[in-house]
Design a protein around this nucleic acid. Structure first.
Lengths: 333, 333
DNA sequence: CTGTTAGCGCATTCAC
DNA sequence: GTGAATGCGCTAACAG
């Protein structure tokens, strides 16, 4: 590892002062065309790369942003992260990515590590933190945008999915097909969006003058296996169910599997609706009826919000709400 | 934004020197239990967080690693990235994530930005850079590990998939089931892994004393639709085929569709084997026999390699070859 | 066991 | 237009 070329090296080789090199590098005024050119040539020749670390120490801005998601191997978040990175890259920022693995302690750990790295801001997706904890976290970072998580009473920017409306539409769709016994696979109990979707589920039931029966709802981990297990358990106790509204598409696919194992035909014996519209939804058999959530837009809007906050509009908080759209496929025609 | 607590603040409040605080923070020897405790209390009380930026400047190690992938919204890479982050987190490192979007120029741009951030090392996945460009990039970073990319002639660490063996095993499985007319949907002609898998296909045929017939192979775009079209075309000209080995699972799913359309039962009239074992593979009907590429393992092994390199074993280069494993399901029992 | 002296590489005052 | 100090927050030698 040959030691790095520094600004001082460039200055010496170009016969100018540190200051002049700094000006050229940062494209500031105050440097004649001639010296500017000369300096640039030396930079090229020596292969000089400014150190963001040193610059960060001096300016207190690192050009880095943190993105924390529950699980990057989940399509939803991987696409949000990709969108966020895309926008950040265009603004000359790099992003740290952290996976909480649905573990609040780990989430806090990641947020702390980002703080130590002195990120300029954080995009926090689907936080599982308790309100108070989250409130504390806000103080750790100069800017923060929540995605898919609300925090009442604090002026914090957020990009939200209208989960309640989504859940209501999905459930309503099932009810309108004549189903009276609609179960709910609710996802993680700590999930904010889960609770919102549950609210939509209840609202639709109420609208149809049906009473909400807690026994027909069951929480589960938000993956295929979680959905499969929960569906099996739920259907074992409540064979009367003829339809299932699921927290997300992965859970719905798990439910699909469970039905196959239990010999219940979808959609004949059991209608199923998911949430998100991940790529898999269109490819499973039967294809999945679901609520489409525009993932790329979610991620890019959130990152745009964050960048605007980082670039001066620090105090301002804005909330963007994105409404999901029902996509009808074979699992619940 | 209240200004940050610094080490000096802690030192003053605890009535000790900077050095002592530094020692406590970094858990180094040389600090009596008593002062250690006192300092720790002050740190807690003041909410002090050490600055990785300042530390990085002083130590020339930032505790950050770069991970560059073509597209984080692709299951393959999002899982690799997650695995990498997982391992890095356990080693107290944060990762920058960059998406090249399959664009070499952008790939270079990301690698440069990582250099400016002074990452301790880079995990470069499926690089699209030309050999010479890649060789140049090696000099930008103190450590680098390639994933799914080879670079002949240079001592660079890499984690590779043994596509040839995978292709051979898949084909052999079909041959051992009694098939003598095994077709091959080859994927994109330009794909390196495609050529490797083709080599495995040929090797298996040879081993069974069958001659390779180019007419039984057909290239296609590596998606469902590509597989469907190629399968239709191939079977139209060669109805004698009783089995298909496919470039990847998406192509195989396309072939499945084609068979359904042509009225050929899978696996009775036609056996099909895919590659990758994406989540979809287990979920289609019939479920897909395929070569599993262990994505998590790929990412974690690569990150482990990178970390070992970062932690002293700088010069050493190691190549890890991960062998895919045949997963037998319904499409080719 | 503890404190003092120097930088790490750069940007930000100010002078000239 | 350009340059000389000074400091960002921390750690690595050295002293005591």
């Amino acid at each position: 590892m040959p030691k790095r070329v520094t600004m001082a090296d460039v200055a010496r080789a170009a016969g100018v002062s540190l200051m002049t090199v700094s000006r050229v590098v940062n494209d500031k005024g105050g440097a004649s065309k001639a010296t500017r050119r000369r300096v640039q040539d030396v930079i090229e020749r020596l292969g000089y790369r400014p150190s963001s670390i040193a610059r960060g120490l001096a300016t207190k801005r690192t050009g880095t942003l943190g993105v924390v998601v529950p699980d990057n191997s989940n399509t939803f978040f991987s696409e949000v992260a990709r969108a966020a990175e895309h926008i950040a890259y265009a603004a000359n920022h790099n992003i740290f990515l952290g996976n909480t693995e649905e573990d609040p302690q780990r989430e806090v750990g990641i947020l702390r590590s980002f703080e130590e790295k002195r990120v300029d801001g954080v995009l926090l997706c689907s936080s599982r933190l308790a309100d108070d904890t989250l409130r504390a976290v806000l103080a750790w970072h100069p800017a923060i945008v929540l995605l898919n998580r609300r925090l009442e009473g604090d002026p914090v920017s957020a990009v939200l999915i209208d989960d309640e409306t989504g859940g209501q539409r999905a459930t309503k769709h099932l009810l309108q097909s004549g189903h009276r016994a609609v179960g709910f696979l609710a996802g993680p109990p700590a999930s904010y969006s889960g609770r919102q979707r549950a609210a939509g589920y209840c609202a639709a039931l109420e609208e149809a003058r049906l009473t909400y029966d807690p026994a027909w709802a069951r929480s589960c981990s938000p993956e295929i296996e979680g959905g499969r297990e929960a569906a099996r358990a739920l259907l074992a106790h409540h064979p009367e169910l003829t339809a299932l509204f699921c927290y997300n598409d992965l859970v719905a696919v798990g439910a699909l599997k469970a039905c196959a194992e239990l010999g219940r035909q979808v959609p004949e014996d059991m209608a199923i609706v998911g949430f998100d519209d991940i790529p898999l939804a269109a490819l499973v058999t039967p294809s999945l009826t679901t609520c489409r959530v525009p993932r790329y837009e979610l991620g890019s809007r959130a990152m745009e919000l964050l960048l605007s906050q980082v670039n001066g509009h620090a105090g301002e908080s804005r909330v963007v709400v994105v409404r999901p759209e029902l996509v009808v496929r074979a699992s619940a025609p």
